[in-house]
Write a protein that binds this DNA or RNA. Structure first.
Lengths: 338, 338
DNA sequence: CTGAAAGCGCTTACAG
DNA sequence: CTGAAAGCGCTTACAG
């Protein structure tokens, strides 16, 4: 059933190497022999054995992605989906590694065991420090998506988005709608994403000559539904003039909207809300969420393409990309009326 | 850096085969040699080369999953996450194939090229008929998750849930809350899931001596947010006594809730809503959604374990599993008051 | 309990 | 434009 190159060679009356040339689209094969070989290939349904190919070539044709978040988080699964498609178009396979017990070991072994040629890291915080050290010392080609810190980042390749501008654009949009008392709910960690989005928030305020008020900023962990839920209740009780809120991400915004709804207020009538990410469910919220879109498809494209370059040419310099964000206007923000 | 078995053997002063025995935990190795070999292994950081192992053993130690839905749908990504974990615990890898151009070809080639030892199919409708024919004729071990039809299913292994009982449980719960005019929003396709949940709906009504009314059932495609949104508006306009709705899945329920909210009605005060699946966001809806939970972790476990059996023993008979569902009570249903 | 030999199915490096 | 040889790093089947 599963034919080998040798059988194809015999049937076509050529050498093994000639079949190999045809299969891999190499040059230096006369048109006639090519046709002859191709006919046999389709006749016997020949498909090259990947294991043999990997063993002899020394390349796994596979990259690994290390996830710090659950795959079932919408952001992760969407990123993985795009990365998968991009890998496929390069003839590469993708293997997924989730943070957890013994991750560093697993990933290092995967490289030593020739499971993968390179790694994409999409982690949360400092928990991957060990892993990065190992990858560095073993000279494994790797690249970070949305690095959490800029410390020592010059030595590492990464793809990220313009978080500062994301925060600024969101808050600027609210200011243009007439809002002046604007809440902000973020994670408290040292992640650069939090810092940069907060910088963006402050910059937009400063540009509009609106003084920064500490009581309008709520910081806690983790940045999920519950952060938004408890955060907005706190902000409301401390700021009765607040008319809008900038949220760290769409899931936080979900929590914010839930709490506002349950407190008897209305969105956007009483409070405007803006999120970040533009996950699949943003458009399905009630009402549909205005948000800052991350170009996940582009992030995936840059991540995979750059990693391929690092794999194929070890002398490649560090590759750094910062991708632009977009404001997606839906129905959760409206001009201030009070 | 990446040492080979031969190097380990030389350093330990034993034969290649003995190293192999230690690495694979085989018997018939004296404790002393074992210790000696293990010491060398950790010294040189030996990790067996997967490609060599695959080539010589003829087993890929990898299974493939074919997805008919986008990976970024919460249900799919959650299933994949559990399947991934289950594979890992068996020492297997997972490769993801998404429906799309040339899928049949890709999957068949993956098997012929020894990429995978077996396949899990999680598809939508008839679009995988071609693929299934091919897998059958090539005697590829495969298993279907949530088959869409029971036609010829005796010849195939599958894992599914008790859709009939899911529908019945949901509607029975609403009936026990006093509701008698209960809407039902489903996909219209020939998928067995639609038929069985509808049967469950009718059975619950019949058991309570409530006559079935055709005007309370709304069927359309695809079963997503928009189906719920337009479906509920139609049901409301045709049934002004309707006080509750059973939805095909949680995303449909999201659409239903959105439309109800925008029409100025309240949940659960005016209308009770119950979903299906219990996706991650069900608990985050406003209010948190009461729903029927699919045991995705169990589905994954059965799917992977059964597929392994099919792979390891070709004489295994068809394996059939129907897993139970659970009612998850949250805040979208309340006793009828009107 | 241990080992020598053959072979899995390709690619690489070289020769012509 | 074509091919013969060696080898990638393991496992399998067999011998002792």
């Amino acid at each position: 059933m599963a034919a080998t190159m040798e059988q194809v060679a015999k049937l076509a009356g050529v050498s093994l190497k000639t079949v190999s040339r045809v299969v891999n689209g190499e040059e230096n094969v006369s048109p006639e022999t090519k046709v002859k070989v191709l006919r046999v290939i389709s006749q016997v349904e020949f498909v090259p054995n990947v294991a043999a190919r990997r063993l002899s070539s020394g390349r796994a044709m596979t990259i690994g992605i290390v996830l710090g978040w659950a795959l079932s988080s919408t952001y992760s699964s969407s990123l993985v989906e795009f990365i998968l498609a991009e890998c496929k178009s390069h003839g590469y396979n993708l293997t997924i590694y989730s943070m957890g017990n013994d991750l560093t070991n697993n990933v290092v072994q995967a490289f030593l065991g020739k499971h993968v040629d390179g790694i994409i890291l999409d982690t949360i915080g400092g928990e991957d420090a060990d892993l990065r050290d190992q990858l560095d010392s073993m000279h494994v080609p790797y690249l970070i998506v949305n690095p959490n810190s800029m410390e020592g980042i010059d030595r590492i390749s990464y793809v990220t988005i313009d978080d500062f501008n994301g925060g600024k654009t969101a808050v600027n949009y609210l200011i243009n709608l007439g809002h002046r008392s604007i809440g902000c709910i973020l994670g408290v960690s040292e992640r650069i994403q939090n810092k940069d989005r907060l910088r963006g928030y402050r910059k937009a305020l400063a540009d509009a000559d609106i003084p920064f008020k500490k009581s309008l900023v709520y910081l806690d962990e983790p940045s999920d539904f519950s952060l938004g839920y408890s955060g907005v209740l706190r902000l409301i009780s401390n700021n009765n003039d607040m008319t809008a809120i900038f949220c760290y991400n769409d899931e936080v915004a979900m929590g914010v909207m839930s709490a506002i709804w349950q407190s008897g207020r209305k969105i956007p009538d009483d409070i405007s809300v803006i999120g970040f990410d533009d996950i699949r469910y943003a458009a399905m919220m009630i009402p549909p969420l205005t948000t800052i879109r991350q170009p996940i498809d582009q992030i995936a494209k840059y991540a995979v393409n750059n990693l391929m370059r690092l794999i194929e040419d070890p002398d490649t310099k560090r590759l750094h990309d910062v991708l632009p964000i977009d404001l997606i206007v839906r129905d959760t923000c409206r001009p201030r009326v009070k």
